[in-house]
Design a protein around this nucleic acid. Sequence first.
DNA 1: GACATATTTGCACAAATACGCAAATATGAG
DNA 2: CTCATATTTGCGTATTTGTGCAAATATGTC
Lengths: 95, 95
Amino acid sequence: MNEDDRRELADLLKALGEYNRLSLVYELCQCSAPQNAMCLCDCCSVDSSVVSRHLKVLAQEGVVQMEKKGRERVYSLNRSDIAGKLRSLADQIEG
Amino acid sequence: MNEDDRRELADLLKALGEYNRLSLVYELCQCSAPQNAMCLCDCCSVDSSVVSRHLKVLAQEGVVQMEKKGRERVYSLNRSDIAGKLRSLADQIEG
DNA sequence: GACATATTTGCACAAATACGCAAATATGAG
DNA sequence: CTCATATTTGCGTATTTGTGCAAATATGTC
């Protein structure tokens, strides 16, 4: 694995490695339909601006996908993509 | 998943989500025998004290295991343990 | 005991980060 | 257009974090 890929993977893990962001991911896990930020706000008790920033980070790392829907923006997990990367790491670690 | 478990998982991901620490993990990945810190120093160009601290973090999160061996301390990966946790997360994300 | 090597720890510091609040922006509803 | 709701952004702040250097500690070797 080259350096850039490793940096990218580290950034992904860092994005997931913050409690409130991980909570957002778990919340999205349980939703079949995409959710807006206000709804996601409920699962972690922080300001909506904070949720907005966390979702931005998750989107940058490809964890979630955003879609404009009228006045709100709905988010959904890139399930197979992230799961694949985590499994790939697991495989490498297990050797 | 309860809150404590989630916090613990977030801490694990955070430990893995730093470039030099992830590099240490990859380095250990490729070693069949446990390695000491001086050897691990080579894979990331930082001071030995920094490596020491990173290894401490990884040990606290259960990523690596330390064993005293004379004057040096050798580290090895908890391969199946970490791989299992990553796969478990992947499974939950994939739903 | 004296010395060399391996590792940790104390200290200082710069950069990153998470956070809340208030203001700005976007957009649907009336 | 006006208003209400959803979201982002600017700002200030407190905390965390990664880092290097020097000193301290640990332990094998002579």
